[in-house]
Structures are given as C-alpha cells and as structure tokens.
C-alpha cells in the first residue's frame, strides 16, 4: 500500500510495527495519527488510507479527525517552519503586518509550503513570550519585537 520508494516503505513498516504493538486497535486513532505524523512529517492521503485499513475504521473517520485537529496537517512542512503568533498580545502589536509581509515574500498562504519545500508558513496562538510581542518563530528559534522590515533578514538566515 502506497509504497513507491524504499524510504517510504521503511516509514510504513515503522508505522505498522507501532500499530501492531498496540494492545488494542480500538480508540487508538489519534495516537496512531500522532505517531504517523511524527514518522512522515505530515499526513498525506495515502497514509490516512493506510491507517484506516490497519485500524479497520472508515477512511472518512480518519479524515474527519485529521481535518478537525489543527495539530494534524495534510501538507508537507518546509525545511524551515515559520510560525507567526496571532495571540492577543502579538495581534495588538502588529503581528498581522508581519504575517502579511511573509505571505508576500514567500507567495504562500498560512498552512502552505513553498514549491521548493524550503519554507512553510502558519499562524499559531500564543507561544508564551508575550513580553516580546509580536513574536515569530523559525523552527524552534524565537524572534521577538518583529517588524515587517525585519522579515527579509530573518529569511536570509535560513540557508
């Protein structure tokens, strides 16, 4: 199922080992999806179908869960994952302008990845660094008091 390259096959094997080791298949959908996203980086259609077959639940149910929780993503993340905090503090201090600048520079919408796979963009709610608002992150690295004109140099750091 869904195997086209050896690397993919290894990932499916790993996921299958994880599922087979579960004491029961019932009520384990979210845990399995969590693991699957850890292995694949995201949850493409083929992986969801694989999970449905293995857990013997309808594919629609798997998709229902994946589409409900914002944690799960069906799109591959970029090498650099850029997150802009849109929590209250960041929002009132102009996070929206930062996000807008990133949108323009990367030519993608939040939730998307650049065609070259280098950057993905998303907004999130409060990273707990309100004193530094507005905040954006590249991977785990936090940038504080960001203004739109800082975006270029932050992106330039990503090589």
């Amino acid at each position: 199922m869904g195997c086209c390259s050896g690397a993919d096959q290894e990932k499916y094997d790993e996921l299958k080992r994880f599922i087979d080791a579960l004491p029961t298949k019932q009520g384990e959908l979210i845990r399995v999806l969590h693991r699957a996203q850890g292995i694949f980086g995201y949850l493409p259609r083929e992986v969801q179908v694989f999970v449905a077959r293995e857990l013997e639940v309808p594919v629609s149910k798997v998709y229902g869960v994946v589409s409900f929780y914002s944690y799960f993503t069906m799109k591959p993340k970029g090498k650099y994952e850029i997150s802009v905090c849109m929590g209250t503090a960041c929002y009132v201090r102009g996070a929206e302008n930062v996000l807008e600048e990133l949108r323009k520079k990367l030519a993608i919408e939040p939730g998307e990845t650049t065609p070259d796979g280098k950057f993905s963009l998303r907004s999130l709610r409060c990273v707990g660094a309100c004193g530094l608002a507005p905040v954006m992150m590249v991977g785990d690295k936090v940038y504080g008091r960001v203004t739109p004109d800082m975006v270029d140099s932050i992106l330039a750091e990503c090589e």
Binding site: R45, Q48, V57, P58, V59, S60, K61, V62, Y63, G64, S67, F68
Partner: peptide, 25 residues
C-alpha cells in the same frame, strides 16, 4: 451511513464554519 449501514462514506469533518458532513478528503 456508519451505525446502520456500516458503509462509512460520510463523516463530520473540519471545524467551525467549515464543519461539514463529508466524504473522505
């Protein structure tokens, strides 16, 4: 579709205004 027919074609997906009963994907 799920309880009676066990076909599983339909499920609630997305959330908020986007929430809808839908097929897979």
């Amino acid at each position: 579709c799920n309880q009676v027919q066990t076909v599983g074609a339909l499920s609630g997906v997305n959330r908020g205004f986007e929430a809808v009963v839908s097929t897979s994907f």
